[in-house]
Measured scan of single mutants.
Amino acid sequence: MAAGGDHGSPDSYRSPLASRYASPEMCFVFSDRYKFRTWRQLWLWLAEAEQTLGLPITDEQIQEMKSNLENIDFKMAAEEEKRLRHDVMAHVHTFGHCCPKAAGIIHLGATSCYVGDNTDLIILRNALDLLLPKLARVISRLADFAKERASLPTLGFTHFQPAQLTTVGKRCCLWIQDLCMDLQNLKRVRDDLRFRGVKGTTGTQASFLQLFEGDDHKVEQLDKMVTEKAGFKRAFIITGQTYTRKVDIEVLSVLASLGASVHKICTDIRLLANLKEMEEPFEKQQIGSSAMPYKRNPMRSERCCSLARHLMTLVMDPLQTASVQWFERTLDDSANRRICLAEAFLTADTILNTLQNISEGLVVYPKVIERRIRQELPFMATENIIMAMVKAGGSRQDCHEKIRVLSQQAASVVKQEGGDNDLIERIQVDAYFSPIHSQLDHLLDPSSFTGRASQQVQRFLEEEVYPLLKPYESVMKVKAELCL
């Protein structure tokens, strides 16, 4: 049975990233139509530049190519590739079939990587351009969430054990800070992308030097003109047959890092959902379990974690691919890159769409948070109580021993009897502590235990987050809708 299948058929496997999760716009960027249309555009740009620099290419040939950029006979191309065992030459023939007058000058002087690699770089750039505003929107939604809850005390956790208090907004800023680093890295790697350009079979530009009869300047002009037509500021000066596969490492490393950030955020949300302090959106008709109707599973956060793990592992592909590119190139890269580049971007696209949807509907339960604080705060307040007693004339050592005994009794009630923490009640009825009984409410005010959390939130948002989001103001209103 021949390899390949009808990918629109229910009898043929289709990647869930495309069929179930990723956005239509990201799927289109990695589609065959987008790819092969870009090949034709690159052939047109090459012909236009070659004509401008004096090669015998007519206006009629150029116009014929322009008129057929979208006229792609995919069936013919597939048949040609089956016959020739070469995808680029299959599309040269297919393009030439609908451009008979231009057929002889299509791909003039070029090698397969002229269309293959340059198209990949265009796709990487455009895919990054799709991700950047999506990530900015996630940051914006979380920034709104953090600002609104900047002063809401909550129990902090280290080692997932109760620690000092923080605020809900401050905790959210930990998430935002990681995503801001990801946004900066995505922008950097996007701006650092260079075009492969017009380089020939081993990167020496020998074929173009021959076409222009040894004119170095025209060869350099050709490279520059096509690079500018493709919208790049610069091209690699040095290439082998391909652009260095280190570029793929750079791009997928940034995406993998984004995956790590999203995994951490969504894990926190899942843990908070278990504590009943916070939940992701839950639709009115949504079913959490087929057997347990009360369940409210954090399905979206779980999906993000599941896909983020996949995204983090994909960076190993370009690392290994770059390491086995012998001399000017081997074909070890080809099949692998067809999979890992598309999957990385479709996965990143999915987790950003999902995280935006989550961040637009996060639900906080202040009463649950308050109750958990009441359970733990008495123990945390013991040092403040000791200091207040010393100020009232008591002995630190005597007070410490009193607190120690009462704390152990209260802990026994919590752990052995399943009761509430009654340390404060014990202190309130103990005559030894009568000098500070009137101060206990103040000493137990949760806001006095959150330090500068709310001020940190305000400063972080104003100095770091809002300036970073400013270039994306025009796209901030787009909502994230999930079908599944």
Score class of each variant (00 low, 15 high):
H93R: 05
G54P: 08
I265A: 11
D215V: 09
K295W: 14
A273W: 03
R337T: 00
M312T: 12
D216K: 02
M181E: 05
M316K: 09
D73N: 05
P24D: 07
C305L: 08
L155C: 06
H7E: 10
T52Q: 11
I238N: 04
V168N: 07
A150Y: 15
G5Y: 11
G361T: 11
K101V: 05
T166Q: 05
M292I: 09
C304W: 11
G419Q: 00
R33Y: 03
A110N: 00
A103M: 04
K233N: 12
H7V: 07
S140V: 12
R338S: 03
G451R: 13
N421K: 11
Q325E: 04
L222V: 04
A388V: 08
L406T: 09
A392Q: 04
L423D: 13
L362T: 15
F212L: 07
V247L: 08
E343F: 01
E401M: 01
D87M: 02
P16A: 01
A291F: 10
D430F: 06
H93D: 07
W45S: 10
P10Y: 15
E213M: 13
R426N: 13
Q458I: 05
K75M: 00
L482A: 14
D268C: 12
L183I: 12
K415L: 10
I385N: 02
G200A: 02
I427S: 15
N118M: 10
L444D: 14
R309L: 11
L84F: 05
Y294G: 12
L69P: 01
W39A: 13
N118G: 01
E280W: 10
H86W: 11
D248W: 14
T154F: 01
S407P: 00
M299K: 14
E425R: 14
E302V: 14
Y114K: 01
T38Q: 10
Q408C: 15
S253W: 00
V92E: 12
G109C: 13
V219Q: 01
T267K: 02
F433G: 03
F208G: 08
L53D: 06
F327K: 02
L319I: 01
M26S: 07
G214T: 06
T321L: 05
E360C: 00
G4P: 11
D59F: 08
R426M: 00
I351W: 07
A49H: 08
I424N: 09
T166L: 12
A22L: 15
V189D: 12
V254L: 15
L314M: 08
E302F: 08
G104S: 05
L131R: 11
F212Q: 03
C266I: 09
L341T: 05
G197E: 12
G109W: 08
I62T: 04
F28D: 10
S151R: 03
K66V: 06
V413G: 15
V363Q: 00
S434L: 12
P378L: 09
N118R: 01
L307K: 05
R337F: 07
F345Y: 07
N274G: 08
S474H: 07
D422F: 15
P471T: 11
R171A: 00
D87E: 02
P293F: 12
A2E: 13
F160V: 03
S23M: 12
H91V: 04
D32M: 06
R14V: 08
A146Q: 13
V88L: 15
G116T: 10
H310S: 06
E213D: 00
A235F: 14
L132C: 12
L186T: 13
S454R: 11
A411H: 08
D32E: 10
K229C: 04
A480C: 13
K295F: 15
L461V: 13
L209Y: 00
I237M: 12
L307Y: 02
I403K: 02
R196K: 05
S306F: 07
I369P: 12
G259E: 11
P293C: 06
Y34G: 11
S151P: 06
Y243V: 14
L108D: 09
A322E: 07
L311Q: 08
A410F: 00
H310E: 05
C340P: 07
V429F: 15
I106Q: 10
K187M: 08
V247Q: 06
I238S: 00
Y365W: 15
S395N: 13
E220V: 10
G200S: 09
E220H: 00
Y13F: 08
R141Y: 12
E473V: 06
F160R: 06
S301K: 04
L341S: 05
Q184F: 07
S151M: 04
G203D: 00
A77I: 08
A256D: 01
F30R: 10
G8L: 10
L209N: 04
R194L: 04
A127F: 03
R188A: 15
L352S: 07
G104I: 10
N185F: 05
I176K: 09
D349C: 10
Q439M: 15
R245E: 06
L193T: 04
T158W: 03
M476V: 13
R426H: 15
L362C: 14
A2G: 10
A308Y: 09
S253G: 13
L179S: 02
F327A: 04
A146W: 11
E48W: 12
D192A: 14
E80R: 11
E250N: 12
N68S: 02
H97M: 04
S447I: 10
P133V: 09
N421M: 10
P133R: 12
D223A: 08
L121F: 05
F36A: 14
C304I: 02
L128I: 02
A103W: 06
L331F: 14
E60N: 07
T58Q: 10
G169W: 04
R452S: 12
H310M: 03
D87S: 00
L130T: 14
R396D: 14
S395A: 10
Y432E: 01
V414D: 00
R459W: 04
K367M: 10
S23K: 00
H107E: 01
A392T: 03
L42I: 10
P100L: 06
Y243N: 15
R196M: 06
Y432P: 02
Q285S: 08
L179A: 03
R329S: 09
A103H: 07
L362S: 07
E228L: 08
R303I: 01
L443P: 01
Q325H: 10
A49P: 08
K233Q: 14
K276T: 08
D73Y: 02
E60M: 15
E277H: 12
S412R: 13
S261P: 14
G451C: 13
L84V: 10
A322F: 13
N297Y: 00
K477F: 01
P366M: 03
D11Q: 13
